[in-house]
Design a protein around this nucleic acid. Sequence first.
DNA 1: ACATTAAAAGTCA
DNA 2: TGACTTTTAATGT
Length: 230
Amino acid sequence: MAEYFPDSPYVVDNVGGFSEELMLLLSTSATKNYNPGEIIYLQGEPSKYFYFLKDGKVKVSIFKEDGSEKILAIQENNTFFGESAAFDRYPYFATATAMLTSRVCCIKIEDAETLIQKHPRISFLIITSIIRKLRLLGLQVEDLTFLDAQKRVVHIILKLLDEVGFSTKDGIVIEKRLTHEDLASLTGLSRVTVTNVLNYLEKLNLISKGRQKIMIINKDKLSSLMEEPT
DNA sequence: ACATTAAAAGTCA
DNA sequence: TGACTTTTAATGT
């Protein structure tokens, strides 16, 4: 088994070993609930807060004026978001939207700064999650630059598999209510192209798919598609 | 090689 | 039933 490498834009639990610092930080926060579809912050808005998702699901994405969207990350339990914009004092560069009912801790930036003076280790907590985001962004640029449609879809499947897949009798399943449109927005492809590639992979017997669900039948063969010349 | 558009079929609350 | 998701085909860049 290869060492786990957190390269999935589907992010679950990015706080690692700083539970004490997290408690301190969250003690200055206000918890708020968001409904599915509700916007938490908007691209271009001045940033006064950053956020910690306790439970639920949030997507962070960049929108074009025409409504088309590039999802940067989808996040679940115990993850920070909006933290990059918070500390450089520039406006949010992306929009955060609740995908499911979500419990969110809102942390005022000044409060966090005051707290960090007293408990410097809290900054490691934030640095860790920012670096993970930075890594994700870089890796996405790599994919968008170098991979064709088939490889992008295969790659996102492999990443999701490592991050949120779970084993069953006849394969590993990704069951995260991701639509083809979500996958398209993550990979920078059109919805239809994602469907076509998935159908092709199913015909090769590498995956089988259900509604908002992908079962990986042959991971090794799937990985080998990443090696093929374009 | 992939996007766009449109229309139709499938699925779930 | 109506909203959402997926499939399929034709056409455009």
